[in-house]
């Protein structure tokens, strides 16, 4: 009984259960799918901001890389869906390696600006290769392939089925990122966030570890892009626009960058608001901006730390409280 309770206290289990039940109580399955995809993107982004302390403004380029790679592979080569997703994530990881390798030489705001600059370079490069990317018209003719593994195949055209396919990839990725952040190398990421200078002084070549964090982040951001591509069956330049990078930052901060799962909540909230408010009021971004300001000023832990505080109050356990000296 006790072990079941502990099992239920694991946020990953809670998130898995909630997201399994979610589409049955929430009437808009497509919107739920979108929430998962952006959740994946925001968690991937937070591997850098929350865990390594690196603010990237280039995640739209990585998301876009994933989406374009998937799209192009589908349109030109009718690639297997799993192979395509792996290639898209790998391609985004490669782009992250390139951007990271150069940007990581600078710190703080200069790093952020370099990633933003790369995002812009990437955006305009894509407009130039019209033959491959469709330029401003976007990439058309994308279809959602069936899940094919050997002789077995399964159609995911139907929204509910597609949701569960995305959920499967999402949970797998979340589990992988959880292992990364809990690993010895993940502990070095946190050390860099806390005090890069000291991490270097005890013998860690921080540049190397930061690039690795960037590559991991890029891999999962690319995977999110690939999923979005087959979700919406279209790839447009707006996927790579820097404003998406900004939106991801808002998602992460709103949800809370202090944990692996916080950004999920932020992504779900922003995606939901976007859908509901954008239909009612065209200046809805103003409202999002105000909410964002309030959170950054008064609730720096984001929604997640609120949930944590609430759950520890509900399941009040005899806590060994450290008294700050």
């Amino acid at each position: 009984m006790k072990s079941v309770l502990r099992f239920l206290k694991d946020p990953f289990v809670v998130i898995a259960m909630v997201s399994i039940v979610f589409p049955f109580v929430f009437p808009f399955t497509d919107l739920a799918t979108e929430m998962l995809i952006f959740g994946l993107l925001a968690v991937a982004f937070n591997l850098m901001l929350g865990y390594t302390g690196l603010l990237s403004f280039g995640h739209a380029a990585l998301f876009g890389t994933g989406a374009y790679t998937m799209g192009i592979l589908l349109v030109r080569f009718q690639v297997n869906i799993f192979l395509g997703m792996l290639a898209s994530a790998g391609m985004a990881a490669a782009i992250a390696l390139l951007i990271g390798w150069i940007s990581i030489r600078r710190h703080g705001i200069y790093f952020a600006m370099l990633t933003l600059a790369f995002n812009e370079v990437f955006y305009f490069t894509l407009t130039q290769f019209r033959d491959l990317t469709g330029g401003e018209d976007g990439l058309r003719g994308i279809y959602r392939p069936d899940l094919v593994a050997g002789p077995a195949s399964l159609s995911v055209q139907e929204p509910m089925r597609f949701y569960f396919f995305v959920l499967f990839i999402f949970l797998l990725s979340l589990l992988a990122m959880r292992r990364i952040t809990g690993s010895p190398m993940g502990s070095v990421f946190k050390a860099i966030r806390e005090n890069e200078n000291r991490a270097e002084s005890v013998g860690y070549k921080c540049r190397y570890y930061k690039i690795v964090a960037f590559v991991f982040s890029g891999f999962f951001a690319g995977l999110a892009g690939a999923l979005f591509c087959i979700y919406i069956k279209y790839v447009s330049l707006s996927f790579c626009h820097w404003s998406l990078s900004g939106e991801v930052i808002i998602m992460a901060l709103l949800g809370g960058i202090g944990s692996l799962y916080g950004p999920l909540i932020g992504a779900a909230l922003v995606t939901l608001m976007q859908d509901i408010l954008a239909g009612m009021w065209e200046r809805w971004l103003l409202l999002l901006g105000i909410i964002f300001i309030i959170f950054v000023m008064f609730f720096q832990g984001g929604v997640w730390s609120g949930i944590e505080a609430l759950s520890s109050r509900l399941f009040r356990k005899p806590e060994k409280k450290e008294i700050p000296a």
Partner: peptide, 27 residues
């Protein structure tokens, strides 16, 4: 020049780990 939000143990463990081949293990 510490890792402020990490525990005392973790501060020291990180330094010990820096000599260990396992520092590259991410899984």
């Amino acid at each position: 020049n510490l890792f402020p939000a990490l525990s005392v143990f973790e501060n020291v463990r990180l330094a010990v780990q820096s000599r260990h081949p396992g520092r590259y293990n991410f899984f």
